[in-house]
Amino acid sequence: MATNQRAVENLRSLRMAAWLGWQIESNWTDPFLFAIYSVIKPIAGALILVFMYMVVAKGGLSNPLFPMIFVGNAFYIYVAMVLMGVSFAVVDDRERYGMLKYMYTAPLNIYFYLLGRGGAKTLIATVSVLITLAFGALLFNLPIDIASIDWLLLVTGLVLGLLSLAFLGIFLGGVALITARHGQFTGEAVAGALYMLCGAVFPIDVLPGLLQAISYILPLTYWIETMRRALLGSGSSQILSQLSNLELVGVLGAFSVGVVILSVLFFRWAEHRAKEKGLIDMQTNY
């Protein structure tokens, strides 16, 4: 197939999957209720940390740790949404809608299809992150100044972070392809583990040695730190402060490329195994 034609097909797969994902995510209720639903969850998540902080700080929010926690938590919204958005599409299409086998017989690129399905959740997550940050800036005086944001760092870091997350989702999609009842749980477990390990809501310096070592090999550790530096001007970790912005983005980029390669290789293997074992149209009633 000509490269041009393949690119058109990939883009069509991405666009159609994103539209399908949006319909699935949003058409269960009316737009007003959907908007409320999309706002309440992230704000409640942020407020839990605010109150935890206020209880200990006896009401004060002036400690520099607070904006670090708030911003890290806001960007973590992407983690669960993108990760689950991409990987759960496999479980949803196979088990719930019984459509996965048709996707494999249709002229589409499965990677772009899965990434497209995650696209809708990425869009919802983006709105949630913006609302959470605006909420923090307006109500809790987060020191985010539009004029002093490092936009280049923000955009570069965001693109690399979302790339890592999307392909981590592809990896978990591969796991879902070859497992019967764990597709949903693996996504939640990985998202939960990342919440703890990448220092989304605390500096990784407080983690015990082994967990700290694991956090160094996670791209999301560097991503969250990049987001903090871009918005607040400084990160939360003493250890990571030894890296300049350029070095931080370099490490994030290297890890992101590693995640992409590893995920594609693993998904290819899982897909082959699923076809061999007849798991593409498996129904397990979960």
């Binding site: 935890m52 902080y53 200990v56 700080a57 740790l65 926690i69 939960g192 919440y195 605390f202 407080v206």
Partner: peptide
């Protein structure tokens, strides 16, 4: 594991806040 992970993260949050 799932409730444990979030719980552990919140324990570290309190530790970070001393």
């Amino acid at each position: 594991l799932l409730p444990l992970l979030q719980m552990s993260a919140f324990v570290f949050v309190y530790r970070a806040m001393q």
